[in-house]
Computed example of a mutant assay.
Amino acid sequence: MEAKLTYAFKQAAGLGIIAGMRSFSAPAVISHVYSRHPSKNLGYTPLQFIQSITTSKVFKVLAAAELVGDKLPYAPNRTSPGGLAGRFLSGALCGATVYKASNRNLFIGGLIGGTSAIASAFGCMLLRTGLGKRTGIPDPVIGVIEDIIVITAGTALAKDL
Rank of each mutant, 00 (worst) to 15 (best):
I108H: 02
I108M: 04
L111A: 14
G113E: 13
G113A: 11
G114K: 14
G114N: 14
T115H: 11
T115M: 12
T115A: 13
A117W: 06
I118E: 04
I118D: 02
A119Q: 02
A119S: 05
S120L: 15
A121Q: 09
A121S: 01
F122P: 02
F122R: 01
G123E: 01
G123D: 02
G123Q: 05
C124F: 07
C124V: 11
C124K: 03
M125H: 12
M125I: 05
L126F: 13
L126T: 12
R128A: 07
T129K: 15
G130R: 08
L131E: 02
G132Q: 11
G132T: 08
G132L: 06
K133T: 06
R134H: 13
T135M: 04
T135H: 07
G136W: 01
G136M: 07
I137K: 06
I137P: 04
P138E: 02
P138T: 05
D139E: 02
P140T: 15
I142F: 09
I142G: 00
I142E: 01
I142V: 04
G143M: 10
G143L: 13
G143V: 14
G143T: 13
V144R: 06
V144P: 10
I145A: 09
I145G: 01
E146K: 04
E146D: 07
E146H: 03
D147K: 00
I148Y: 09
I148T: 11
I148C: 01
I149C: 05
V150P: 02
